[in-house]
Design a protein around this nucleic acid. Sequence first.
DNA 1: ATGACACCATCGTGGTGA
Length: 259
Amino acid sequence: MKLATWNVNSLAVRLPQLMDWLAQHQPDVVALQETKLTDEKFPHQALRDAGYHACWFGQRTYNGVALLSREPVDDVVKNIFGFADEQARVIAGSVRGLRVIGAYFPNGQAPGTDKFEYKLQWMRALRDWVREELARHPKLVLMGDFNIAPEDRDVYDPVAWTGQIHCTDEERHHFRELLALGLHDAFRLFEQPPKSWSWWDYRNLAFRKNQGLRIDHILVSDALRPAVEACGIDKAPRKNERPSDHAPVVLTLADAALG
DNA sequence: ATGACACCATCGTGGTGA
């Protein structure tokens, strides 16, 4: 079973690239972030024609998340239970006994701002809710755009980024809090090339110079860890003519471990 | 120190992202 997460930075703009990528890689489940579409504009028919069921949760202009799945998705939940949120950032569902949570963490803008405070509150609420989800669904995947570079090796210039947004102690603490629930950063379960990033700034020829951050992640629960066969970042879509600034992260699970 | 790029909403230019 192949799962993926991709911040597409506008599904309206990126739909053709998404269709190509789905046809090429045939993932079973995909979490999308930054669809930037109200729900009535979600391209569910095009995705259905491509063989995917979808559930989606969007808003105007910003944010917006979706789950795509070759098999139907059950028990769909939107946003963090118990956390009143104006912004569409989370969608969860169950496929083949697997609980999948797709999340678009707040950016946070800069430490000391209201947006940073919102990010911290949001992450606390997420942790508390994921703890409950894990108790109900031991086989769980939490994936998406975390907007956190967990360690210095996830940053092209860790000195310049010290204390900057995505790299603050508070954000990294919250990432470790998620791991402490019994989750594992699937990417780090394997040997990886150094300087592996999932995001590159559009400016300054950052992709060509490979100046990026690893801020898109797939966390797998203890119960799923033995089933993890591979995890990597697919840089290819970042080479498209009009790419998202993020690349997809892909996880392969052994089918035997699933229902 | 600032802006650089992309997208959205809107039609001149500001908000947001990371």
